[in-house]
């Protein structure tokens, strides 16, 4: 009995280890190639770590390429989208959580439907609509599009966080002399900070990763986001792997940072959101 449970524990830990290796290996390889000097790249192809390390690829990417611009563009777009979406989703999530009103059912239905239909459907019409407004090839255009795409899910996410705050608190505030909006701002919002963080992080990551609409709406380097920049770089100079991977590592940093910060809350919120969906 004792040895059997020991065996089970061993198998459990081994399986966990396998998952960790599987999850991290591709990222590790990215990092490994990015610090491998060019002359060792082919001779030491399958070695786990190069015999010599270098940061020349990072240097090049940061100092001599357009990647800093891409990085900056992506930061602006993702940051702005995250803020806009979080503000809008807090308001609408609050409405869904706290009020019962006639159109509620339809609003929820509308938001669910937008989660179902293929976004590629919208590529052509959105391009056609934004173009006369001068919003193609512009970061503002991307922010608007990304905000709309992310608002429905973020609303459900925020709603689930609001649902977790007892209604008594607003009622107490209203009796203390607050209007509903002041109660929302001074009492409820501060208590939803974890939810706000999760929503910010989720939307930031989603905007940071978006590729198809960025490819379609942006041409030229000035307004290119990181995915677009990296992809053009790949198709133009598909030989300099060290530099590409260095750029890849850089693109990974903000997303991973955000993820590690908010991981715990995201698990909470995503579940609630997923179950609702």
């Amino acid at each position: 009995m004792k040895s059997r449970s020991l065996l089970l524990t061993g198998a459990h830990r081994l399986a966990i280890l396998a998952y960790v290796v599987f999850a991290l290996f591709p990222l590790f390889w990215l990092l490994k190639v990015s610090v491998t000097p060019n002359d060792l790249l082919y001779s030491e192809g399958v070695r786990m770590w190069p015999s010599r390390m270098t940061f020349e690829h990072f240097n090049f990417v940061i100092a001599h390429s357009a990647f800093p611009t891409f990085f900056k563009n992506s930061l602006i777009v993702s940051g702005a989208t995250a803020v806009v979406v979080t503000v809008l989703a807090s308001l609408s999530g609050y409405a869904l959580s706290r009020f019962s009103f006639r159109a509620k059912y339809w609003i929820v239905a509308l938001m669910l439907i937008t989660q179902m239909f293929p976004l590629v459907m919208l590529v052509a019409p959105i391009f056609k609509m934004l173009s006369p407004l001068g919003l193609t090839n512009s970061l503002t255009g991307l922010v608007i599009v990304y905000s709309a795409f992310n608002v429905p899910f973020a609303t459900f996410l925020m709603q689930s966080f609001f649902d977790g705050i007892p209604k008594d608190l607003e009622e107490a505030a209203m009796i203390d002399g607050a209007t509903q909006f002041i109660a929302f701002r001074q009492i409820i919002l501060p208590l939803t900070l974890p939810g706000i963080a999760a929503t910010l992080g989720f939307v930031f990551t989603a905007a940071w990763s978006e590729l198809l609409f960025a490819l379609m709406l942006i041409s030229g380097n000035d307004a290119a986001t990181f995915p677009v920049g990296l992809l053009t770089f790949v198709s133009k100079f598909s030989v300099d792997f060290g530099q590409m991977m260095a750029a890849g590592v850089l693109a990974l940093i903000p997303a991973c940072l955000f993820f590690l910060l908010i991981q715990r809350y995201l698990v909470q919120g995503l579940t609630a959101g997923a179950v609702k969906g």
Partner: peptide, 26 residues
């Protein structure tokens, strides 16, 4: 946190990353 990390990797980067893993050169 570690096993959930791939989910935070931008999808285009995940694609590139795996394309490179399948590339015999690299």
């Amino acid at each position: 946190a570690l096993v959930f990390l791939p989910w935070a990797v931008p999808s285009f980067l995940a694609g590139l990353n795996w394309a490179w893993l399948f590339n015999p050169v690299i």
